[in-house]
Amino acid sequence: MNLSRARIGERLIEAFIFLSGWSAIFGMAAITLFLLREAAPVVPRIDWHEFFTSTRWIPAPARGNEPHYGALALIVGTLTTTLVAMLVAVPTGLAAAVYISEFAGRRAREFFKVTIELLAAVPSVVWGFIGLMLVGPVVSEVTGAPLGTNLLTGGLVLGLMSAPVIVSIAEDALRAVPDSYREAALALGASRWELVHRVLFPAARNGLLAACLLGLGRAVGETMAVLLATGHANQIPHSLVDPVRTLTAAIAAELGEAPRGGDHYRALFVLGVVLLVFTFALNLAAELVVKGVRRRGRS
C-alpha cells in the first residue's frame, strides 16, 4: 500500500518534470506558429523587394492611397543601435570581467558580482528613462545634436544594459580556466597582462564569445529602452546622432493603434517574424559556439 502510494507520487513527479521540459518546446513552437499565422494573410500583399530595400513604411495610409511596407530603415535601425551597443558593451564588459576574475581581491569580487547581477535586473523601462533624462541631454550637450534621443543615446543605453550580461558570463568563463594555466604562465615570467591576453583569452575564447552573443541577443530584442531613447524616426541614420527607429520599437508603438486583423496589424507581425529570425540565428550561433567549448573540453 505504502509502496504503491510512493510509486504514484513518483509517477506524478515524473509526469510533471516531463511536461515542464516539453512545455518549453511547446511554448516556442506555439509562439512561432502564432506569429506566422497572424502574419500570413498579409504576406501575398507585401512587395518583398520593397520590404528589404525601401524605407517607406506607410502601413496605414490616408484613404485612397496604397500602403507601403518598406522596413529597411527599421532593420537598419535595429542593426545600428545594436552595433553601437556592442561597441560600448563588449570592450567594457570583457575588461570588467577580467578585472573581477583576475585582479580584484576576494571581497571586491563578491561585491562586484552582486552589484552586476543587480544591474542586470534593472527593468528596461528604467533604463529607457535613464536614456531619456540623463544620457540624452548629455549626448545632446556634448555633440551639439538638436535632439537627445538618437542612435547614439539608444546605443549607449543598450550597451549599458547588455554589459552586465556580458560581464557575468565572461567572468564565469574566465574563472573556469584551470588555475594550473595561470600558475604555469606566471612561473614562466609572464606579466599579469600577458597572462590575460595570451593564455586566458585563448583558453576561455568560446565562453567569452558566447557571453558577447548573449549580450548581443539582449540588445537586439530590447524594446522599452530603445522606444524611449532612440528618437523614433523612420529613417536611415547618416550620423551617430540621427534619431532612428528599431523593429521592436515600431511593433510596440504601432500595435496599439493598428486595427486587429487588418493589414497594418499583420505587417507588424511580419516585423516580429524578422526579429524572431534574427534572435534565433544569434542563439543558434551562441549554441554552436558553446557546443564547441564542450567538445573541446572533452577531448
Partner: peptide, 13 residues
C-alpha cells in the same frame, strides 16, 4: 628560476 609542476600543463596554444 624555471619551474615544472606536478601535473603536466599544456597551455591552450
Amino acid at each position: 628560476v624555471g619551474m615544472v609542476f606536478p601535473l603536466p600543463v599544456g597551455l591552450p596554444m
